[in-house]
Amino acid sequence: MNARQKPDQFSATPDLSRGRTAAWRLEDTGGEVRIGIGLPGGETAEVTGRRENGQLVLTPAPSVQGLEALARAVEALTASAREDRSLVLASGGGANSALCDLLVRQGIALPAEDGRLRISARQFWQVPDFWLPQDGAGTAYPERHILTEGRRHPRRRPKPSGTVYRRHIPWLGGELSFRTVDPEADLATFSRWMNDPRVDEIWEDAGSFHAHRAMLEEKSGDPHILPLFAEFDGTPFGYFEVYWAKENRIGPHYDAQDYDRGWHVAIGEDAYRGREWITAWLPSLMHFIFLDDPRTARIVGEPRWTHVQQIRNLDRAGFAKVKHFDFPHKRALLVMLLRERFFSDRLFAPEAPTA
């Protein structure tokens, strides 16, 4: 499959059913749009659209398949660009009324003044079922505060095992996923990455198998850290850590809130570096973090203050620069991304390339 996929080609993308895949084909003739959906089991569905007064009016099939097809159609129309497309659902009388009611209850659609339903991309992308394959993911774990080393914070949910996020990347023509790390099965890959000079320059964790096994076991056993491998079409290419900021070393350096989260990243494979890949994994990781707990309103980071390229990437991804501060091992820049900005500005999609 080509790295850049034309809109009229089939692409693998997650189905509405958790952990399954479908395929969609987008045909845009200018005045009309037709999106064919290949559903699991060999069934198909279709969403058509026509342009009216600057709006794209979509017509799904009047069935449960219509919801699955419509979800994939909205993803297809909003995943590749930050353009604020006005998507409207055609009048939902008769057999479509149940579908319209469901869309409103899920927050995907809002009533418009003309009686039709306006589909909200910023709300659609906050529905965890479309991207989080595990049952119960994306719900708020019951709150109970505890103390860890003198820091008061909510008890964190038990950590998952296996794949926690899936998303089709249209401009790369494949599926990006995050899965939890297996300290034994993933040790050789992790150790090779940590000993890569480009990774070690940032992480400073080069060492032996023994040291790296202990490192992974410690991270996997820590309730506030979720170690992940990033994969593209099943091939691992990077190591990510998602952490709760209040219990982390960053917590004392700003007014950390209960559900703030942060992250670290190491891209271990040279073939997966570069702008097209950053625009895939960086917003997808932020998307996963915001979906994982609906109470997370802020994501923080602490890049080394001299790491110009990383800070530039974070600028493009919507992070604000807050302040410089000092760790024992480095001077860092505190950066922060707001949930409101991420979804309102549609930062789940790449920005338009500049000339």
Results as ranks from 00 to 15, higher is better:
F290G: 01
T235K: 13
V300Q: 12
G234S: 14
G262D: 14
E217N: 06
D292Q: 08
W305M: 14
E218F: 06
M286Y: 09
I225S: 11
G262C: 13
H264D: 10
F288N: 06
L228T: 10
I225V: 11
H307V: 00
R295K: 11
H253A: 11
E302L: 09
P283R: 02
T235L: 08
F232N: 08
G262Y: 13
G238V: 03
P223V: 00
W305E: 14
I299V: 08
A271K: 14
F232C: 00
I267F: 02
N248G: 09
V265F: 06
P236M: 04
P303C: 05
G262I: 12
L282I: 07
K219L: 08
G274V: 00
R273A: 04
R304T: 13
I278R: 12
W281R: 00
P223A: 01
H253D: 04
I299L: 10
F288M: 01
I299R: 01
E217P: 02
T306D: 15
I267E: 00
R273W: 07
R249L: 04
H287L: 10
I267S: 04
R275F: 06
F288G: 10
L285E: 01
E231W: 12
S220M: 13
F237V: 06
R275I: 07
F290L: 08
H253V: 01
G268P: 13
G274C: 05
A271T: 10
F237K: 05
L285P: 05
W244F: 04
D222K: 10
W281Y: 00
G234Y: 11
D233I: 07
Y243W: 01
T306E: 15
D293A: 01
H287P: 08
T279A: 13
R275S: 11
F288L: 10
V300I: 13
W281Q: 00
F232Y: 04
Y254V: 03
Y239R: 06
M286S: 11
G251V: 06
Y259G: 12
E218I: 02
W305F: 15
R273N: 05
Q257G: 14
V308Q: 15
P252C: 13
A297T: 12
G238D: 02
M286W: 07
A256Q: 02
R273F: 06
A280M: 05
W305S: 15
D293M: 08
Q257C: 15
D233A: 11
S220Y: 06
R249G: 04
H264W: 10
T296G: 13
W263V: 05
W263P: 03
V242F: 06
G268I: 06
G301Y: 01
W277C: 07
R275A: 08
F240W: 12
E231N: 07
R295G: 07
L226I: 07
I289A: 12
W277M: 03
W263I: 03
P223I: 04
F240H: 13
W277T: 04
